[in-house]
């Protein structure tokens, strides 16, 4: 038996050995918390439009996102966000709250290494790819539409 065969066999064995956890509860949690965050955004958006009837729809949406981002970083700061997230899983990662948390959490974590090379540089360890991919993709889309 070669080493590669042995490793393949071992990997398969380990894979089979891992106890299958029941996925349903975590799917349900992700569903209701994710849905709840979206409804929260919608309610804030609607209230905003009631209070400021002259506001443009696009601006209202931007304010809604800013509100949710604020909420998520604040809860991250208080140390509550990760407690909710361990229960909700993707329910808090996929909404914009996850993006906000992924910037605030390394900022808090690495401030011991200094403001410049610690907090500010490490702030984007997780969110960096989101910004890079987003920017590049939007430029590609723009280019396509430019030549269409």
């Amino acid at each position: 038996m070669t080493e590669i065969e042995r490793n393949e066999r071992y990997n398969k064995y380990v894979e089979a050995k891992i106890a299958k956890t029941h996925a349903w509860p975590s799917l349900f949690n992700a569903f209701w918390i994710g849905g709840f965050i979206c409804v929260l955004g919608q309610i804030f958006n609607d209230l905003l439009l009631i209070w400021f009837p002259t506001m443009a729809t696009q601006s209202a949406w931007t304010f809604t996102l800013i509100f949710l981002i604020f909420l998520a970083s604040f809860l991250t700061g208080l140390g509550v966000f990760d407690k909710i997230a361990v229960y909700a899983g993707a329910g808090t990662i996929v909404p914009i709250t996850g993006f906000s948390n992924s910037i605030a959490s390394p900022a808090m974590e690495f401030k011991n290494e200094g403001i410049v090379f610690g907090m500010c540089a490490k702030m984007f360890v997780i969110a960096g790819p989101v910004i890079v991919f987003g920017t590049v993709a939007s430029m590609i889309v723009g280019l396509i539409y430019l030549f269409l």
Partner: peptide, 13 residues
């Protein structure tokens, strides 16, 4: 907002 609040709460907490 994400960067600003991240910086703010990162320095506070």
């Amino acid at each position: 907002a994400a960067i600003g609040f991240g910086f703010l709460f990162g320095s506070l907490f």
